[in-house]
């Protein structure tokens, strides 16, 4: 990461140029509070009974009802929350692994291999990145119905096994991080193209793959529209399952908030562990989408 400001301490106008004034600090503090508060509120409501939402003044600290709420959450008959968690874990991991594999393969080919039609194919790929997902949802649904995949988990996995965005990101990173000499040296040593990919390219791409992997996992885990369209209520993903917790006549907030807290927790843990990489990925311009 690029360091902010120079560390030198000079006199005159430069001394205060990169410092943070009190106003800046107040604004940042307020931003952090606003950023984190809804997550904290989720925890507060998830650890209390449903009466909490009506009480004045509202509670500000977590209560002791989390265990009971969790039991209600996983015991809820229409939401299938446990199954939703498992389904989302399977879908997100599968999509992540395959995106990393296919995107790095294609990105490497586009960046470093010479073949007829390369530029044309690259252009086609870039154009496809502009098309919104919603565009294809109806025919995609009809296609899934035709091949009998509606209601089945592969419907939310197979169409997303690799994205144009992933390929493009890998191509950009390969261009910048992998010197041609490295590939030529491996060729002279008699490496096949696959071997070069496996032993030379993959190790170099590791940092970019970490970021792409994180991002892909998050995106798949959080996907809502497509599972809602193609899956059935008795075999949902976790986000779909959240929607099923909402009763028709009566909104049980503590139940729903427990669900959102549990559904958010895995990503928050991953974020706390790898947030630094995600941030440098965004700031390196790797994740501009």
């Amino acid at each position: 990461m690029i360091p902010i400001g120079s560390r030198r301490r000079g006199g005159g106008p430069l001394a205060t140029l990169w410092g943070a004034g009190p106003l800046t600090r107040i604004m940042l503090a307020a931003t952090i509070v606003l950023s984190v508060f809804p997550l904290y509120w989720m925890l507060v409501v998830a650890t209390r009974t449903n009466d909490v939402v009506g009480s004045v003044p509202p509670p500000v600290v977590p209560g002791g009802e989390l265990g009971r709420n969790l039991a209600r959450l996983f015991g809820n008959e229409q939401a299938h929350f446990g199954l939703g968690l498992i389904n989302s874990a399977i879908a997100a991991s599968t999509v992540t692994v395959s995106t990393l594999l296919f995107a790095s393969l294609a990105g490497f080919a586009f960046a470093k291999l010479r073949f007829r039609g390369r530029n044309a194919l690259l252009l086609v790929m870039l154009a496809t990145m502009m098309v919104p997902v919603q565009m294809g949802i109806i025919p995609l649904y009809m296609l899934m119905a035709e091949i009998g995949w509606t209601g089945r988990l592969q419907a939310v996995i197979v169409p997303f096994l690799v994205t144009g965005f992933g390929v493009f990101m890998m191509r950009q990173y390969t261009l910048q991080a992998l010197p041609d000499e490295l590939i030529e040296a491996a060729r002279i040593d008699g490496c096949s193209t696959w071997r070069i990919y496996w032993s030379v390219v993959l190790p170099v791409l590791r940092p970019a793959m970490a970021v792409l992997g994180l991002f892909t996992f998050m995106q798949t885990w959080n996907e809502f529209l497509w599972p809602l369209a193609v899956l059935d209520p008795d075999n949902p993903t976790v986000q779909y399952s959240l929607n099923l917790l909402n009763g028709a006549y009566y909104t049980d907030y503590s139940l729903m908030f427990t669900g959102t807290a549990v559904a958010t927790l895995p990503l928050l843990v991953i974020f706390l562990l790898c947030g630094r990489q995600l941030i440098s990925g965004i700031m390196d311009g790797a994740l501009k989408a």
Binding site: T31, I32, S35, V36, P38, L39, W41, M42, M218, W221, N222, F224, Q239, L242, N243, N246, M256, F257, T260, A263, T264, L267, L268, I270, F271, L272, G275, R276, L278, I279, I282
Partner: peptide
């Protein structure tokens, strides 16, 4: 990280909260 934390939260969770 504090500034970015909301992005990790799913749209559905944001909408519910």
């Amino acid at each position: 990280m504090g500034v970015l934390a909301p992005m990790v939260t799913s749209v559905a969770a944001v909408a519910i909260v």
